[in-house]
Amino acid sequence: MTGFQRVLVRKGGRRDRGFSLIEALVALLILAIGLLGVAGMQLKALQSTHMGYQRTIATLAAQDLQERLWQGLADDSACPDPSSADWKDQMKDKWAPEWGQWLPGIGENPVSLGSGNCVYDISVSWSEGRAAPDESSRQSFSYTVRLPELGGSA
């Protein structure tokens, strides 16, 4: 018998039982695949958290627009016209830059007239920063607001 065989065989002819190198490598491979799965889930969770954060900012931006519409109603005693040059300039010069620091690629004309007097459709859109910079990476949030008609029938 060689020295190697003597290690494997005990007195009485029984072999030692234990893990072979192949079994240990297979166990290590299974563990590595599991850890890759956990890392993938963590990455997806971080992306979802970021998208939720951006949607929250979009909600705040839409509510800010609603407050600006209310301010326009209070200043003029009439529902604001989002197609007017003053309103578009305010959106381009004030609103979009203010919210653009939080939502990259935010749209500059987010408000349109809805289905009736003093009904507005607010649509805030932005570029999803963690996706590829194509059209499919655009996200949007829609919000409908109805202001009371002052001096008219409700």
Rank of each mutant, 00 (worst) to 15 (best):
residue 32 A to L: 14
residue 32 A to K: 00
residue 32 A to T: 03
residue 33 I to M: 14
residue 33 I to H: 02
residue 34 G to Q: 05
residue 34 G to S: 06
residue 34 G to D: 00
residue 35 L to C: 07
residue 35 L to Q: 07
residue 35 L to M: 14
residue 36 L to R: 01
residue 36 L to I: 09
residue 37 G to L: 02
residue 38 V to S: 13
residue 38 V to T: 10
residue 38 V to I: 10
residue 39 A to R: 01
residue 40 G to E: 09
residue 40 G to C: 13
residue 40 G to V: 13
residue 40 G to L: 15
residue 41 M to E: 07
residue 41 M to G: 10
residue 42 Q to I: 12
residue 42 Q to N: 05
residue 43 L to K: 09
residue 43 L to E: 15
residue 43 L to Q: 11
residue 43 L to R: 13
residue 44 K to A: 15
residue 45 A to L: 12
residue 45 A to F: 03
residue 45 A to G: 10
residue 46 L to K: 03
residue 47 Q to C: 06
residue 47 Q to V: 08
residue 47 Q to I: 08
residue 47 Q to N: 13
residue 47 Q to E: 10
residue 47 Q to Y: 14
residue 48 S to H: 07
residue 48 S to V: 15
residue 48 S to G: 12
residue 48 S to Q: 14
residue 48 S to K: 02
residue 49 T to R: 13
residue 50 H to Y: 14
residue 50 H to T: 14
residue 51 M to S: 14
residue 51 M to H: 07
residue 52 G to D: 12
residue 52 G to Q: 09
residue 52 G to P: 04
residue 52 G to S: 02
residue 53 Y to Q: 15
residue 54 Q to H: 08
residue 54 Q to E: 10
residue 54 Q to S: 12
residue 55 R to P: 01
residue 55 R to N: 14
residue 55 R to G: 02
residue 56 T to S: 14
residue 56 T to E: 13
residue 57 I to D: 03
residue 57 I to Y: 05
residue 58 A to D: 00
residue 58 A to Q: 01
residue 58 A to L: 06
residue 58 A to H: 02
residue 58 A to K: 00
residue 58 A to S: 04
residue 59 T to A: 08
residue 59 T to C: 05
residue 59 T to W: 14
residue 59 T to I: 13
residue 60 L to A: 12
residue 60 L to Q: 07
residue 61 A to Y: 00
residue 61 A to H: 02
residue 62 A to F: 00
residue 62 A to L: 05
residue 63 Q to N: 15
residue 63 Q to D: 08
residue 63 Q to L: 11
residue 63 Q to H: 15
residue 63 Q to G: 04
residue 64 D to Y: 03
residue 64 D to I: 02
residue 65 L to S: 00
residue 65 L to D: 00
residue 65 L to H: 00
residue 65 L to V: 11
residue 67 E to A: 15
residue 68 R to G: 11
residue 69 L to S: 00
residue 69 L to N: 02
residue 69 L to T: 01
residue 69 L to K: 02
residue 70 W to H: 09
residue 70 W to Q: 13
residue 70 W to T: 06
residue 71 Q to A: 11
residue 73 L to N: 01
residue 73 L to M: 07
residue 73 L to A: 04
residue 74 A to N: 12
residue 75 D to E: 10
residue 75 D to N: 12
residue 76 D to Q: 11
residue 76 D to M: 14
residue 76 D to S: 11
residue 77 S to T: 09
residue 77 S to M: 11
residue 77 S to V: 08
residue 77 S to C: 09
residue 77 S to H: 04
residue 77 S to E: 10
residue 78 A to C: 09
residue 79 C to Y: 00
residue 79 C to F: 01
residue 80 P to N: 03
residue 80 P to I: 03
residue 80 P to D: 05
residue 80 P to M: 09
residue 81 D to Y: 01
residue 81 D to L: 05
residue 82 P to T: 06
residue 82 P to C: 07
residue 82 P to Q: 05
residue 83 S to W: 08
residue 83 S to V: 09
residue 84 S to D: 13
residue 84 S to K: 01
residue 84 S to R: 03
residue 85 A to W: 04
residue 85 A to P: 02
residue 85 A to C: 12
residue 85 A to L: 15
residue 85 A to E: 12
residue 85 A to D: 15
